[in-house]
């Protein structure tokens, strides 16, 4: 039976600035089954990274989780003391960051840095921690790890540093690895290697991975489940096949339409028109409504809930809800769709 190692329910995170409250994350729900990979996709500023930081409670001091649940193996992490969270961080849940060039402390050798969490969480001696660091470097595919362990970060390339970051994150056999755009700053060839490495390690160590990215290619490559985020909310959550074969939310469809495809002729790519709404000035209704080609008055007036369809996938769109009045044809980026409330699937028609 599949168990969910991480369940996030209706997470809301706000930042309090001089200009007022900024709702960076406003309704994020997803589940991560054990041993699987979840992709969180969305454009810049959609709240992906804040979601990840909220899970580890590493928000800046003006940020606060105001509502929701983060269940790690059934236990709600919200309300944990800082001390208890420190035992979770790097031990049960660890994270790798986007920018490998600045993610390592320049004044320590990489061996010292990998050892740090081993000494803290597993109470190893310095010597044992260093030996384990060598094994970890070997695990992440760094050649001659015995020599590299004594290197300083500036002596390594970006790809190598990201491998070191992965080694650090894996040091204590975490159950969840959160990877925040781990390949964005790397060369394409290195990207593929790092993705491959994470996948391989996941299978070998049996951990679950949360992959934060704006690259749908990466998602297709690595993920089992996908949560699509828009303006601080999850708008669609389903398994990776459904997302690519039968995307439901107009935003997801728009995202896919804006990608070049090699399985069909395309004259030109169809972009999503308009801009992401300002966080301080969100639309009253559905946040995607100003840009949505299928938006109705209902969409503009009221925010839809994230609700399950008959396959158990979540979508935040009126078209698929009970409130949608009857059968209706909607035009989503040139694709005719017939939506008829819950239980009736959207039909592709060309």
């Amino acid at each position: 039976m599949e168990t969910n190692v991480l369940e996030v329910h209706n997470l809301r995170t706000s930042f309090y600035t001089d200009d007022g409250e900024v709702k960076a994350v406003d309704g994020v729900s997803f589940t991560l089954p054990k041993g699987k990979t979840l992709g969180i996709v969305g454009e810049s500023g959609s709240g992906k990274s804040i979601t990840a930081l909220s899970i580890l409670q590493l928000l800046a001091s003006n940020g606060k989780i105001i509502d929701g649940e983060i269940r790690f193996k059934g236990e709600n992490l919200i309300g944990y003391s800082d001390r208890k969270m420190r035992d979770i961080r790097g031990n049960a849940i660890s994270m790798i960051f986007q920018e490998p060039m600045t993610s390592l402390n320049p004044v320590f050798t990489i061996g010292q840095q990998i050892s740090e969490s081993l000494i803290k969480h597993q109470k190893l001696s310095k010597r044992d921690a260093l030996l384990k660091s060598v094994d970890l470097l070997k695990l992440v595919g760094i050649p001659s790890p015995e020599a590299r362990v004594r290197n300083y970060p500036y002596e390594l390339s970006g790809g190598m540093r990201q491998r070191v970051m992965i080694a650090m994150a894996l040091a204590c056999d975490p159950e969840i690895l959160i990877a925040d755009e781990p390949t964005t700053a790397l060369d394409v060839t290195i990207q593929a290697q790092i993705l491959q490495l994470i996948k391989e390690l996941q299978h070998r160590l049996g951990m679950s991975v949360v992959f934060i990215t704006h690259d749908l290619g990466v998602v297709a490559e690595t993920c089992d489940y996908v949560a699509v985020m828009y303006a601080g909310q999850v708008v669609e959550y389903s398994d990776v096949f459904t997302i690519f074969k039968e995307p439901k939310h107009p935003y997801t469809i728009g995202l896919l339409n804006s990608l070049p495809r090699h399985d069909m002729e395309q004259d030109k790519l169809e972009p999503i028109r308009g801009n992401v709404p300002n966080v301080r000035d969100m639309p009253i209704g559905c946040r995607f409504s100003p840009r949505c080609p299928a938006a109705t008055d209902l969409c503009r007036a009221e925010l839809p809930e994230l609700s399950k369809d008959d396959k158990g996938n979540d979508v935040r769109c009126w078209i698929y809800s009970d409130n949608w009045d009857g059968e209706m044809e909607v035009n989503v980026y040139g694709e005719k769709r017939i939506a008829q409330g819950r239980g009736v699937k959207a039909v592709f028609s060309d």
Partner: peptide, 14 residues
């Protein structure tokens, strides 16, 4: 504000 401070925080440093 450098990223390695976030990184060590994410590793559970006090």
């Amino acid at each position: 504000q450098l990223e390695y401070i976030d990184a060590v925080k994410a590793l559970g440093a006090s």
